[in-house]
Design a protein around this nucleic acid. Sequence first.
DNA 1: CCTTAACTGCACTTATGGTACAGTGATGAC
DNA 2: GTCATCACTGTACCATAAGTGCAGTTAAGG
Lengths: 212, 212
Amino acid sequence: MTAVLNRSSSKRERILEVAEEAVLAKGFAATSIEEIITAVGITKSGFFYHFPDKSDLAKALLQRYIDHEETLLGDLFQRADELHEDPLHGFLVGLKMLAEVMSDLPKAHPGCIIASVCYQEQLFNRDVVELNASALLAWRKRFRERFELIAKRYPPKIPVDFDALADMMSGLVDGGIILSRVLKDKDLLPRQVMLYRDFVRAVFLGTGEDRA
Amino acid sequence: MTAVLNRSSSKRERILEVAEEAVLAKGFAATSIEEIITAVGITKSGFFYHFPDKSDLAKALLQRYIDHEETLLGDLFQRADELHEDPLHGFLVGLKMLAEVMSDLPKAHPGCIIASVCYQEQLFNRDVVELNASALLAWRKRFRERFELIAKRYPPKIPVDFDALADMMSGLVDGGIILSRVLKDKDLLPRQVMLYRDFVRAVFLGTGEDRA
DNA sequence: CCTTAACTGCACTTATGGTACAGTGATGAC
DNA sequence: GTCATCACTGTACCATAAGTGCAGTTAAGG
């Protein structure tokens, strides 16, 4: 129609936006391609031009979410570290900021995408599970390295495996998303993050010492 | 055919068994009714005689799982309490036993059912979410009461909200199931339970005292 | 001018969930 | 003994949604 600037695959982006909203609202299986294309104003052929099949849409959605989370959390902990030179207190501040971010999110936490996509048929799991796994392993590594750094200054008062402690964060968030959805309690997730923070503090500072 | 004893809805049970296995292996959406009925040796009409629609199957699956978990965990913590008169140590023993149960489970933990069913379309969520919510609230209540009992003898060294600490258990398990699935690491879940145990111990015993 | 990316349009196939409804064999109540 | 009811079978049919195939179109850029 009108010569709208055709900036690189604007429709593809629109599809992802519309799809993400619908998936968060209703789940992946309940979101039909038909519905997406009418919302975007595109034809079925147009959809299948961008995505070979629906699984591919799921993959793209997941990738999009992982990238977004990556930058969000990366920035957050970096900002936290700029406030504190100490690795432990920087981390604790980061966790507090994370809890705030979690409670600020208007609707459901986008993290739903992970579980939503991941728990839908495993038909397309080869790719999707690997995507998920590499993202999780990246966070495990990041957190473990941080814990090792902290441990140099604060010898652990509770002997814990740092990989497990790192995984606990991911697990708690994923599980917390489910709980907050089911119980319709949006404060549950930030509260869990703060509990995790309490645990981390106990691990490195113990329970007798001063608390910030 | 042969006059097989028609004990109350034996086919219904078979459907649930077959469906559970398939759902755990492939997810709910990827499990077709056709596939279930051929495995059970029943007709489509037979299926829809028992379940008005597929959502009803999901509901029944979830109810079945919740009941099973209820008795399993109920028995477990009762046995643990019989070994220790002390409420804290009985609970800690229960958590250790729980971790063992989690690692013993051959394939994926059945808890997948919850998330699997819960994250599929929310079309049927009125019922399913409420079922889930009431089960979660029951566990919250149970754990909170236990923590209050423990707190009488062991004043908390870390001030935590007992509801949140109770929810942490549920969240950690649900999240741990996702992680262990994605990372294909069946030891991850029991390790998370043991970490939770460390936290509970730190809350009530602190980090300086003797550890069992 | 020609190619390519990003689509449209249309026709068609398959899978799956779901409906409708008549019939049947065994069991238990009366 | 018969009658109703439960737990199904059998057949036929409908709607939706995913996915295929392919020819045609439009705009941007070299």
